[in-house]
Design a protein around this nucleic acid. Structure first.
Lengths: 343, 343
DNA sequence: CCTTAAAATTTACGCGCGTAAAAAAACTAT
DNA sequence: ATAGTTTTTTTACGCGCGTAAATTTTAAGG
């Protein structure tokens, strides 16, 4: 590194003995210049550490090299984990991911979309809030910016959706629970924020009917994203009032189950498969912490990295296909049964 | 909204019946124009939804309205929670936060700092990786960009640090455990990534000696940020070899404790205060999930929102104080003892 | 109504880079 | 060496906005 500070591309071109347009070409695509020229620039780059001004670059670009990533609630390790996968994949493809969390609030989600618009991103990977999303606004956004929706689908919105096959998730789990013991009741929030929850409820009902059982529900009040808290409260009440009509409980998601198991422990309700257990409990998602609950949680695993991988790949297809591609069929990943100690 | 699309500030100024410099002034500070003028612009804003091009704006600004937020590992709910607080506070102050996670890798942290440099942010809130941070690079960054370090201090680097008083955390917990039962042994990673862990170890030793007890350690191998996994493995081994010389275990952080408790449950080791319990377990941090462990985890609570609040406030002081202020003393927050069922 | 101060307008330049067109230079193959 | 091709250089314009200086308009106060 030399003392000389390079302010702009003009200066950098001079010190590397080239013209500015050539250097500009290099930064847009190193392969587009002659190997010998490339070498000269790379050498100069080591001596002078210059970086093109991103704002000046993007001002003149119709499309930037930015990818927006939007999740509904980053404090949920599930989304943190997905976001991490997405980020990594984008970087590998030479893009700069920009991460946003709606923190469970519609207003925030709307702000983020507006911000993203002005960022002229090459594309956006978005897990919408779901029920409380501003559908019209999300729809308009998807029409204007190449966007892949993942995790939670907003009906009729967006060209590309990547998610989990909730029908398969729940069917499989109900089937498993039914084979190995009592058929489960379904533990869920009364008004879930996430559309996956509604699909899982439907799937539960269908699966139970198919097996000749009557669906049974235990529903908890509560809004927001503090699912553990809600699950805990709901379980405490249900246990106190002995509200379970069966010895098996299927939770709509693992975070509810985590709260549920904590309540069971506190109330002295033994959970698991052993002879002296009163209850079996299962969940959905294979949350990062489900391995460490007491007992460890039997659940259906979402394939995080597959969803991330596929989302990014579909986004780049969308970006590449000049004309906005026809709305494609949703991609739904099947889940894997993870048999642990709780059921 | 009208059909007319506004492309730039010139056009927008025309439709609002004003000149571009006036409109420009408005966007930089709405208070700087006459109320009647402000109203006219705001009305036009509703009819035409125009937003200044952020890239063009930032190109000509020495300092942008961006605040960088860097955390070492976003999949850790502790950092997700802190980040959420920081984001919210920044937005309230009229800045645009930009969130980055190092994902536990030095290379990534370095890249983020380089990216941030080119973003010309007004300031940066950074929780460094700690031990594996590139100290020289972080130092240089802090000298060039107004930066507040939080959570984990890199010795001798940065002008402002906001964190927790680990000495007080651990002292208090050791004191409490000693008063209510056996003095604790210390459960930790052999080579912790985070400097807080080292401070806690020292504090543990001092506290034990002050109380006339000999410090005892159970140390686990393992690197990375999968603390629950590491804690679980360590506890399984320790229990198998009956490696505890005392009936009380103080974990270096809650995530290790979560894994620890899971292992205890699996091994049939009863944890808690009741007569039939073999072990008491405590942690540090009051992780968002510590309330839902089995049994619920006794710990020392970090004051998330206070740290966030203070960090943001100090950053804005740094930004406001034209000349780079003299290195100020660290701000350390005391923790609160959270007595739950595990100890 | 006139004086003053405050605010808005006009005019004009610059930021750092993308990019197009024409000319010059550097390679490649014969 | 020469014709033909590829790459680089020259030249020049534009992007959308910040911002400064000089001028004109507006509002306020006596």
């Amino acid at each position: 590194m030399t003392v000389t500070k390079i302010k702009n591309m003009e200066e950098f071109a001079t010190v590397s003995g080239l013209s500015r347009p050539t250097v500009s070409k290099f930064f847009n695509d190193p392969q587009s210049v002659r190997p010998s020229t490339r070498t000269r620039i790379e050498e100069a780059l080591e001596r002078f550490d210059y970086r093109p001004n991103i704002y000046a670059i993007n001002q003149n670009r119709q499309l930037t090299k930015t990818i927006g990533i939007v999740v509904p609630y980053l404090a949920d390790p599930f989304f943190a984990e997905i976001a991490r996968n997405l980020e990594t994949r984008c970087i590998e493809e030479g893009y700069s991911p920009s991460l946003f969390s709606s923190h469970g609030r519609q207003e925030q989600e709307n702000d983020i979309l507006e911000t993203l618009r002005s960022m002229k991103p090459a594309g956006v990977l978005m897990a919408p809030l779901g029920r409380i999303s501003d559908k019209g606004l999300v729809e308009r956004f998807c029409n204007d910016v190449p966007t892949v929706l993942f995790d939670s689908k907003v009906e009729g919105v967006g060209h590309v959706f990547i998610g989990s096959d909730n029908m398969q998730f729940t069917s499989m789990m109900v089937e498993y629970l039914n084979r190995t013991g009592d058929a489960p009741c379904f533990f869920e929030m009364k008004t879930p924020a996430n559309p996956n929850a509604r699909k899982r409820r439907q799937a539960y009902i269908q699966a139970m009917e198919r097996l000749g059982h009557q669906p049974k529900f235990v529903q908890v009040d509560g809004t927001g994203w503090e699912f553990e808290e809600i699950g805990h409260r709901g379980a405490m009440e249900a246990i106190t009032h002995d509200a379970f009509e069966t010895s098996t409980v299927l939770c709509s998601n693992d975070r509810l189950a985590i709260g549920f198991l904590a309540a069971c422990y506190q109330k002295g309700v033994r959970v698991g498969l052993k002879k002296d257990c009163h209850l079996r409990v299962a969940g959905h998602d294979d949350h990062p912490f489900s391995k460490f609950t007491c007992p460890s949680l039997t659940t259906v695993a979402q394939d995080y990295s597959a969803i991330a991988e596929k989302s990014v790949r579909r986004l780049f297809e969308l970006i590449a296909g000049e004309s906005d591609a026809a709305p494609s069929a949703d991609t739904l990943f099947e889940g894997k049964l993870v048999m642990r100690d709780s059921a």
